[in-house]
Design a protein around this nucleic acid. Structure first.
Lengths: 104, 104
DNA sequence: GACTCGCATAAGTGCGTGCTTATGTGTAGT
DNA sequence: ACTACACATAAGCACGCACTTATGCGAGTC
């Protein structure tokens, strides 16, 4: 169940931080560590979890491995969220934003 | 961090099942157990986690406690997802559906 | 008031998970 | 070839978490 992997991956705050960093531009594993107080193996393990969940994908570049956000993972979350659209009208504010951005 | 609570709550497949059941109509804790092979305390604990995350809210009714989906939690997920809208265009298919549903 | 019922809480337990240190693998530079 | 570097993997450990059984609590019923 990939859906399970996605939510489990995002359940960790360190991984959410990594994901957010990658959303601002692709980086290699070492660059991601800057200002994060995390060991190299820990980062490698986190990236493996994010990759297995389809939230991140790698792009080898010599001895560097560049990581970037994988839109597929985000699309799956959107799909999951869409299942509960019946409950949106009560609190549309945040979704209005979402809708507006997609219009253009 | 409520965002952390939300993702952590949804990281458990049993809780996702409970949430999905509630999305099809509010129920009390006992009714939720039907066909789920889960003990009463376990269900109670899961509901407490979902409630703490803002995904579910309770409505006391005598000695019964009716649970229902809390739209606030879903809105927060949508807000989180909106932060990464820059990566949506690459995979709009699933989101097209989402958009279409919200138009009507 | 005694009992039942729906649910919450307490306390204990086994397992998953995120960390660590140590080591392996592959690539670039000299 | 040797070294340095970027990253992955292995193994061990401490903690969190989802479960269990037992008990508590409040609301109905008789």
């Amino acid at each position: 169940m990939i859906e399970h992997d996605i939510f489990r991956a995002l359940a960790d705050s360190t991984r959410r931080t990594i994901f957010e960093k990658l959303a601002n531009g692709s980086m290699n594993a070492s660059a991601l560590r800057h200002g994060m107080d995390i060991s190299q193996p820990a980062m490698s393990q986190h990236l493996a979890v994010l990759r297995a969940a389809g939230l991140v994908r790698e792009q080898k570049d010599g001895r560097f491995v560049n990581y970037e956000v994988d839109p597929d993972g985000l699309a799956l979350i959107a799909q999951w969220l869409a299942k509960y659209r019946a409950y949106w009208p009560a609190r549309i504010d945040a979704l209005k934003l979402l809708l507006k951005d997609m219009d253009q």
